[in-house]
Amino acid sequence: MSTEVDGDASLDMAAIFGEQRRLIDHFFDHFDASQASKFVHEIVECAGTVFFSGVGKSGFICNKIAMSLASIGVKSAYLNPLDALHGDIGNCEKSDLLVLFSKSGSTAELLAMVPGARSKNMKIISVTCHECSALANKSDMNIYLPLQRELCAFNLAPVTSTIVQLIFGDTVTAAVMRKLQLTLESYALNHPAGSIGRKLLLTVRDVMRTGSDLSRVSIHSTLHAGVQELMRTGSGCVVVTQGVFLKGVFTDGDLRRLVADDRFDIRGAIENYASKKPLCIQDESMKLVDAERLFHSGSKSVSCLPVVQTRVEGIEVLGMLVLTDTMRALA
């Protein structure tokens, strides 16, 4: 087999992609969207789990569709046909829905699953590229995906039918999202580790520094002790407290200005150098994405925000939100 591909004038990639587009357009031009509407209804109304099953490449598409639906809160899963025939059909119940993907509609393993599904009184929906097929005839509902031919030169390799299956599955998923009126917050709950999830779910409480991670010195401490605490945590800010109550903050910016002006006593009381009315966060349950804006909300940007709660006795320090920690959490 020749490995030379560069500069092969006989390989017109633009024409090949154009042909693939025309084959996909055939699907869009001839697909009955009302079938998809009924399918969406079945998914939304399913009281149990929507099981997807297919063999080979169709199986990979089924797995992807099941995962996509699960990510928006629909109980769905991929059911391996071979495993189903050897016991896994036991996971299925009457309230479940079985969706079988097969280009030909004659896949032996899927046809063999039908009696087991019937014994469970499951509803069966087949998705095929042939309207009149054995699988369509054995299903409660058949969805026909029009396919003119495969892009494969022999019309055998499923290089177009799988695209059509995926387009159908992903479009149905998007339709289910609209049918369920899924909110961004609900979507985030299923993606806690993703960027969207972090931005919508993380709160100040999740990221703020507390305990030994919190830079804190007593109001009676020296400036020297405050500088040491700055160096210990690297947070860029030290809260000055009397007991648990906030009396001020001292930042590395304050230190730089003192050094530049040469007007400090390293053994002097830190309360003489601390800012007495720092910008604070009053609600530790505030969404982190909202809190991030506070770093730049004042007349000048700050790198740390004490997290506090107001009590009769004074303003209690709960923790400290650091800009670098916040940006890292939201990245």
Rank of each mutant, 00 (worst) to 15 (best):
L214R: 15
R311I: 00
T326L: 09
D206G: 02
L156P: 05
S301Q: 11
A174C: 05
V55D: 08
C152I: 01
L97F: 03
T183V: 06
M208V: 09
H130N: 12
A329P: 04
T210C: 14
D283L: 05
G248N: 04
E93W: 10
I61V: 15
T203E: 13
L98I: 08
G226F: 09
V207L: 10
D283F: 06
E185G: 07
L11S: 00
I65S: 07
S133N: 08
S215T: 10
Q309C: 13
E93S: 15
Q148R: 03
L323H: 02
P278V: 06
A36H: 06
V217T: 10
S37M: 03
A108C: 02
R21Y: 00
A193C: 12
S53G: 15
R311E: 10
C132Y: 11
A274G: 05
T203K: 15
F250K: 07
G243Q: 12
E284G: 00
I167Y: 02
V312L: 12
V44L: 01
F31T: 03
S10L: 01
S195F: 15
K199P: 13
A188G: 08
V302A: 05
S53H: 11
H26D: 02
S285C: 11
T233M: 04
T183M: 13
C92D: 04
L246D: 14
D206K: 00
I125D: 01
L305A: 05
T49S: 03
R205E: 15
A66T: 03
P158Q: 01
G90P: 03
D8H: 00
T203C: 08
V172S: 05
A329L: 10
L230G: 07
V317Q: 07
D254P: 01
M320R: 11
T3L: 06
S303R: 12
L230I: 08
F52A: 08
G243F: 14
V239Q: 12
A47P: 08
G226V: 10
I16V: 14
S10G: 00
S71I: 15
S76A: 15
P306I: 07
G59P: 01
T107A: 10
S71C: 13
L255A: 14
R22K: 13
V227H: 11
V55A: 15
C237G: 14
V244H: 13
G253S: 09
T251P: 04
M177W: 04
L318V: 05
S2P: 00
F168R: 13
A33G: 05
V312Q: 14
D170C: 08
E131K: 15
V322Q: 02
G194P: 14
N272P: 01
L223C: 07
K300T: 15
H296V: 14
V322W: 02
C129M: 11
L318R: 12
A9K: 02
P158N: 00
E4K: 03
V289A: 11
T128L: 08
T222C: 05
T49L: 03
K138E: 10
N137M: 13
Y187V: 07
I72Y: 07
S303G: 14
E93V: 08
